Simulated assay, not measured.
Amino acid sequence: MKELTATGRTVDEAVQSGLKQLELQADDVEIAVIEEGKKGFLGIFGHQPAVVNIREKIDPVKEAKQYLENVILNMGIQAEVTAEEEPKKVMFQLKGNKTALLIGKRGQTLNALETLVQLVLNRHSDRYIQAVVDAEGYRAKRKETLRQLAVKLADQASRQKKDIHLEPMPSSERKVIHDTLSGYSDEIETYSTGEDHNRHLVISYKKQ
């Protein structure tokens, strides 16, 4: 993040001087006036320059992308990170030779990275933005796997007439199963239970 204190005969002149030094535009910075300046007697004696502090605005997406790159590098993995912005969501795509390590068992590592990036992204944003971290199309494949699993377990719950508790999973994955089984059968309902990392979904058989 670039920042400096600039001076000039007027506030506007100080600002323009600072922007030129930083090679930034006015929309890219935050400006704080420290001294408005004084012309002095006859425009000469007692003159005091205007002083401003100019700080580059933090780009939440750029900050989150750099954070993700640093985390991956510290894991000893070389991977390319790209960010695609949507109105309320940012997709971070990972590409490299060791994406399997970044995905982890059932996407656990990828989910952990996504949680961290989500925090960084919204720490510097004035509105909530959803972060999605994906690698080699894993999210789409996982979504299809969850849909198939949902139907299979719903049929099992109906046959055995009992509730089935799934393993803990992120809210986004629980939502896939909720949506898949919504209206699937009058005998089946789904709900989440548990706290924090133990929160999991239940496929419940409704006694008729």
Results as ranks from 00 to 15, higher is better:
206 K>F: 02
61 V>A: 06
75 M>S: 00
68 L>W: 07
207 K>R: 11
35 E>Y: 10
91 M>V: 14
203 I>R: 09
177 I>G: 08
90 V>N: 10
66 Q>G: 08
31 I>T: 05
171 S>P: 10
31 I>Y: 07
43 G>P: 07
154 A>T: 07
24 L>V: 08
32 A>W: 00
198 N>F: 04
6 A>P: 10
183 G>P: 12
105 K>R: 13
189 E>Y: 06
57 K>F: 06
31 I>K: 09
24 L>K: 13
186 D>H: 14
24 L>F: 03
65 K>C: 02
159 R>Y: 08
41 F>C: 00
201 L>Q: 13
136 E>V: 01
2 K>M: 11
62 K>M: 11
67 Y>C: 09
35 E>S: 12
194 G>V: 03
103 I>A: 01
57 K>I: 07
26 A>F: 14
16 Q>N: 15
76 G>P: 03
182 S>W: 01
48 Q>K: 15
144 E>L: 11
34 I>C: 08
72 I>P: 05
12 D>E: 15
83 A>G: 08
8 G>C: 04
86 E>F: 15
50 A>V: 12
72 I>L: 01
129 I>V: 14
88 K>I: 07
157 A>F: 08
74 N>C: 00
82 T>L: 10
195 E>W: 02
183 G>W: 10
145 T>V: 02
67 Y>I: 10
116 L>A: 12
197 H>P: 04
170 P>K: 03
179 D>L: 14
197 H>T: 11
43 G>V: 06
142 R>K: 12
139 R>H: 04
41 F>S: 07
10 T>E: 09
131 A>D: 05
88 K>E: 14
181 L>I: 07
113 L>T: 02
21 Q>E: 15
188 I>Q: 09
149 L>T: 03
12 D>S: 15
21 Q>V: 14
172 S>K: 06
72 I>K: 02
124 H>I: 04
73 L>T: 08
182 S>Y: 05
50 A>E: 12
9 R>T: 13
120 V>Y: 04
43 G>S: 06
12 D>T: 15
86 E>V: 01
182 S>G: 12
180 T>W: 03
100 A>S: 11
97 N>K: 13
73 L>N: 04
51 V>M: 12
14 A>R: 07
